[in-house]
């Protein structure tokens, strides 16, 4: 009898201590979250995470630079000829093979909108901002963009064609809110 009581009692007694200890640990864990989360971007910073951009004022052949999360974003309204030229490139000629269509997204109707090309305007080599000129050599040999820092040439799909840059100009996450309204910063 005595032996059983001695054996059982500690377990029953310990239970309350285990419960209290667990509750303290769990509570501390919950309280740790605000202490960690306060270092994440605050609401005012997050409100700048996406921008809306209306492309209806853009003229054919023109490029506009929008500022998004502190980075330049190239939004280019390409001519029919430029689109055709981008489409015609042989993938074997490319350092970072990608078709022009792979670099576009669909509008609200589900069809690709090849006239608008959106890229992040930062050279993938060492971070300079490439120059734009579709008509002149200032825009590089492929009449897209040319990076003046170390001479990377991008074509009018933003793909690297010549020079030290390892990859094509990056495409930011964006989507079409309407036929002409882009939201940059959120995935489609």
């Amino acid at each position: 009898m005595d032996a059983t009581t001695d054996k059982e009692e500690p377990t029953r007694r310990d239970f309350i201590h285990i419960a209290s200890g667990t509750a303290v640990v769990v509570g501390t864990g919950f309280f740790a979250w605000p202490l960690i989360d306060q270092m994440n971007p605050a609401a005012d910073t997050l409100s700048l995470a996406t921008i809306d951009f209306d492309v209806s004022d853009l003229e054919e052949g023109q490029q506009v630079v929008a500022k998004w999360q502190g980075k330049p974003v190239f939004i280019r309204y390409r001519t029919k000829a430029e689109i055709a030229e981008a489409d015609a490139v042989d993938l074997d000629d490319l350092k970072d093979p990608q078709t022009d269509n792979e670099r576009l997204i669909a509008g609200p109707d589900g069809k690709l909108k090849p006239e608008y090309l959106v890229t992040i305007g930062i050279c993938t080599h060492l971070g300079c901002v490439p120059l734009f000129d579709p008509n002149d050599e200032k825009g590089g040999e492929y009449r897209g963009w040319f990076c003046p820092c170390h001479g990377s040439h991008y074509d009018n799909s933003g793909r690297i064609r010549k020079g030290p840059a390892p990859t094509n100009l990056e495409i930011p996450p964006y989507r079409y809110m309407s036929d002409t309204l882009l939201q940059i910063g959120t995935e489609a």
């Binding site: 979250w33 605000p34 202490l35 989360d37 306060q38 994440n40 605050a42 609401a43 005012d44 910073t45």
Partner: peptide, 13 residues
């Protein structure tokens, strides 16, 4: 005000 309105859990801390 920034802490109370914008910072995550700033309204608590």
């Amino acid at each position: 005000q920034h802490i109370n309105r914008n910072v995550n859990f700033g309204w608590l801390l």
